[in-house]
Design a protein around this nucleic acid. Structure first.
Lengths: 145, 145
DNA sequence: GGTAATTCCCATGGATTTAGTCGGAATTAG
DNA sequence: CTAATTCCGACTAAATCCATGGGAATTACC
């Protein structure tokens, strides 16, 4: 039940882009250095975020990445889904016709519990936007990086 | 963000033991057959549940396993923690002095969000007991196995 | 036009975790 | 004694995680 470094690094990178939203593209290297993320690894992750349409890339010198949408319109759930796959504790919950596929998982009470778990996870991740994350960080002692 | 087969099989096995609670020990093979779980693998998992004190074993012929406590006193969270480790989306949330260790994870807003996620997951898993699971399954069309 | 910066794409590799098997010793009911 | 069963540890195969690195394409700037 863990978020891997893919999700963690991805959210941190998006957080970073939010802090500098509207000030032009930020190169991967800068994000990596300031957030303490391995550069080549982050490049790989941000490529996925680009293909998913969450960030926009600008190639060449002075290039880099920017958020593809305003921070209010991107949720942490969006980021996690791209980098970690569907947010679901049990694979079968996400498939059509899973009732038959799961077969032995059978007893619907268990299925309902997994569904409740899934719902509660999504409720948190889908209601937290990048904007609200930055907003919240303003009330912290720490300096946002 | 998935529960692995360890947790899934473990919950199914405990569910099975709950259905037969008070009727003497159930051998691993029986659970495995009726729940469609690889026998040797389940043996390994149930050994962990025994060492954690969630089930009691009775060796020898006519032996097997029983719940170590009434089904009302065992939660799904208990089972998951034994087989999957701590229920936490981010490792650092579970350590003492993590504020300093996490270092670059820095901005507390992210930490708070992970904490909210963790809390919401635990709320579901720790309020679902084996007894409530079986109770709920009585209102389903399916036959409990 | 040349050069440096930067994205983009792909291939590789080690470490860890997951999933599942197996063989055999110890224990116990009948 | 025998059959059933737990108990224990070793083993393998596959997947996933966490990177690292090379080279091509694109672009700003002088």
């Amino acid at each position: 039940m863990r978020i891997s470094t893919r999700g963690e690094y991805g959210v941190r990178a998006m957080f970073h882009l939010t802090l500098h939203y509207g000030k032009g593209p930020i190169p991967v290297r800068t994000i990596a250095e300031q957030q303490g993320i391995p550069e080549y690894y982050l490049e790989q992750l941000i490529g996925a975020l680009r293909r998913a349409g969450l960030v926009t890339s600008i190639r060449g010198a002075q290039g880099g990445y920017t958020l593809a949408h305003p921070p209010e319109d991107i949720t942490v759930g969006d980021v996690i889904r791209v980098l970690e796959g569907p947010i679901t504790p049990m694979e079968c919950l996400d498939k059509a016709g899973a009732e038959t596929e799961c077969g032995v998982l059978g007893p619907c009470a268990m299925r309902k519990m997994w569904q409740r778990l899934k719902d509660s996870m999504e409720r948190v991740l889908d209601t937290t936007t990048l904007a609200s994350l930055v907003q919240e960080s303003l009330f912290c002692e720490e300096e946002p990086v």
